[in-house]
Each structure stands twice: as structure tokens, then as C-alpha cells.
């Protein structure tokens, strides 16, 4: 049966998909976060909300935040203060536009998909600066500056590793990139693939201000850094949703770029029967697990250690990897 929709209707459907899937995903992601963290720390995590092992915990948290009073500091810049969470959150939503769930299941298959992703992902930095500056709180400002510095520093490893992948695939379109991948995914090219993957993971964690790169939002340091003055729904949208949805988005992107997206893990007959969606979700779930696992394992880096790590190690390494990838393409087998 063919459904004939006008462009407008298609647009609305697409918007609705994103607007439902992403928040629901963020809720589930938040619950997974609490439970995984708890069990890794030999405890139980949420157990009461909703009855069975606290499945409704994040939902309850969201509802609680909705009840909170919306406070804007008297000397804050009202318009900027109000817009900052939106500037942070909307780009995260937009990230989901180009992630392919299956060969034909993609909201918008842009030819410049990867470029679009990286560009949109950087807009968040502005939002953070807006939030910090407009709070009229010098500690929030310090947090905002730290955060912005961190985001800028760790953009490069992400961009460069994604660029290396695009070089290997020969296209910026995400679907093409997935199609170009074959078993064994990140292990190819040997060494380079794994290093690129690690670079991407570290950069992604810093982009999302996840520990060990969470200095800007560390409680004991700056309360919540740029978001110190935010309460209620602004806080949730700007901070929590953004972080969790961002995590899911990056997990999806990582799957697409490095793990083979919707392709089966091993090109083995019986496994091909399973639809690509399932593979995509399995791989994304693994990526989320990995991101969280790293998050729970390590203490945070100090701001200067963080910057040093990025500028003195990760970026030179990623530049070197670009060189290596280029060499591999030109002179290596196939490519």
C-alpha cells in the first residue's frame, strides 16, 4: 500500500518521530544510566518508582522538575538566559535527522550527512556560553568558559576521526559510509581503525561533559557550571536531556561510522535474516554501555589536565592518523 503524502505532511511526520523518539529514548537512557551505574557499584539503583525495579524513575524525575519554580536571577540577561537551553537542546534533536537505522530508514539522507552532523554538534558550545554569561554569576561564567574550551578542544578529535572514516568510505553520506563498511569493522584498517574509534569515543565523552571530562559540571567544583542558575524544566532540557539524548545520538553516530550501522556483526548467513533495525539497536546499546562504563570507571580530570590531554595528545594523534589513513588509501591494499 502506498501512502501518498505531500512534502508538508512528510515533514510533520518526521518532526513527530524525532520529538517522540528522542525524549523517550532519553528517559530510557537515563534509567539505563542509573541502573548500570548502580550495579557496577554493587548496589541496586532505583527500585521504587513505578513498582518493578523503579522503571519510572526518570519519568518521575521529569515530572518533579516540571513542578519546580522557574527562577531567573534578577540581574540575569532574561532573553539570553531563556534561550540558552534551547540553543543547547535543539541541535541535539537535529542530530537524529541523518542517522540511518536501516538502509532505507533514515529521516533525511543528506549527501553531506557527516559534515552536517559535525557542524550541528558544534552549535551546542554557543549555548553553553550563553547560559554561563547570562547567569550573572561569576562561577557560572567560569564553568561556561571551561566548558566551551573543552568543547572546542575535543571537537577536533571527533572531526578528524570522522574525517578519516569519510576518507576511507569515500563519501560524506552516512548511508554510503555504512554500506562501505565490512566485517571486521573497527579492526580495519588494522590499528588505524581501533585508534580512530578510541579517539571518537574520547572526543564524544568530552563533548557531552561526561566524566572523566566533566569538570565544567562537576558538583564539587562549580555546582553545575554554566547551569548553576537554572531550575526546573530549563535545567532538565538544557542539562539532563541534552546530555542523555546527546549520548544516544553519539552512540548512534559511532555505530554508523565505526561499527557498521545496521549491518549484521558477522556476515554469516543466518544472521542476515535479522532486520537491520535490530542490529542497529544492538550496536547502539553496546555503544551506550561502553560510554557509560568508561564514565563510571574513572575520576575526573582537572581542567588543565583535560586541555593538555586534548591539545598535546589527542589532536596530534588524530592528525597523525589522518596521515596514516591517507597513506593507507593511496598505497595500502584496496582501501
Amino acid at each position: 500500500m502506498d501512502i501518498d503524502l505531500t512534502a508538508w505532511q512528510i515533514l510533520i511526520v518526521k518532526l513527530l518521530i524525532i520529538l517522540t523518539v528522542v525524549p523517550v529514548g532519553a528517559l530510557i537512557g537515563g534509567y539505563v544510566l542509573h541502573k548500570e551505574m548502580a550495579h557496577m557499584q554493587h548496589r541496586l539503583g532505583p527500585m521504587y518508582a513505578g513498582g518493578w525495579h523503579g522503571w519510572a524513575q526518570t519519568l518521575a524525575d521529569g515530572i518533579k522538575f516540571a513542578y519546580k519554580e522557574d527562577i531567573i536571577p534578577a540581574s540575569a540577561d532574561r532573553r539570553v538566559f531563556s534561550m540558552a537551553p534551547a540553543v543547547i537542546f535543539v541541535p541535539v534533536l537535529l542530530l537524529f535527522l541523518v542517522i540511518p537505522i536501516d538502509r532505507t530508514l533514515i529521516i533525511e539522507d543528506l549527501d553531506v550527512g557527516l559534515f552536517y552532523l559535525l557542524a550541528i554538534g558544534s552549535v551546542g558550545a554557543i549555548g553553553v556560553l550563553m547560559a554561563g554569561w547570562s547567569s550573572a554569576n561569576k562561577y557560572a561564567l567560569i564553568g561556561a568558559l571551561r566548558s566551551a574550551g573543552q568543547l572546542i578542544a575535543y571537537e577536533l578529535p571527533i572531526v578528524l576521526s570522522a574525517a578519516a572514516v569519510a576518507m576511507l568510505a569515500g563519501s560524506l553520506s552516512l548511508v554510503t559510509i555504512v554500506e562501505a563498511q565490512d566485517w571486521p569493522f573497527i579492526l580495519w584498517p588494522p590499528g588505524i581503525g581501533l585508534a580512530l574509534f578510541m579517539l571518537f569515543i574520547l572526543g564524544a565523552m568530552a563533548e557531552m561533559s561526561l566524566p572523566p571530562f566533566d569538570m565544567p559540571v562537576a558538583e564539587s567544583e562549580l555546582i553545575t557550571g554554566p547551569f548553576t542558575e537554572y531550575t526546573g524544566m530549563r535545567f532538565i532540557f538544557g542539562f539532563f536531556f541534552a546530555e542523555t539524548a546527546h549520548m544516544i545520538a553519539f552512540a548512534g553516530i559511532g555505530t554508523t561510522l565505526f561499527l557498521g550501522g545496521y549491518k549484521p556483526i558477522v556476515p554469516w548467513g543466518p544472521l542476515e535474516v535479522i532486520p537491520g533495525i535490530i542490529w542497529f539497536f544492538v550496536k547502539t546499546a553496546f555503544m551506550i554501555f561502553l560510554l557509560l562504563w568508561i564514565r563510571f570507571s574513572f575520576p575526573r580530570l582537572r581542567e588543565d589536565q583535560l586541555q593538555k590531554f586534548a591539545w598535546k595528545f589527542l589532536i596530534p594523534l588524530s592528525l597523525a592518523l589522518i596521515l596514516a589513513t591517507g597513506a593507507w588509501i593511496l598505497y595500502g591494499p584496496g582501501g
Binding site: E36, H39, M40, H42, W293
Partner: peptide
Amino acid sequence: LLKHLFKRNTV
């Protein structure tokens, strides 16, 4: 941490 994730919880 991975080990503890799969251990029986004694809470």
C-alpha cells in the same frame, strides 16, 4: 566494574 555488574547483588 564489569565484574561487579554481573555479580549477585547483596543489597
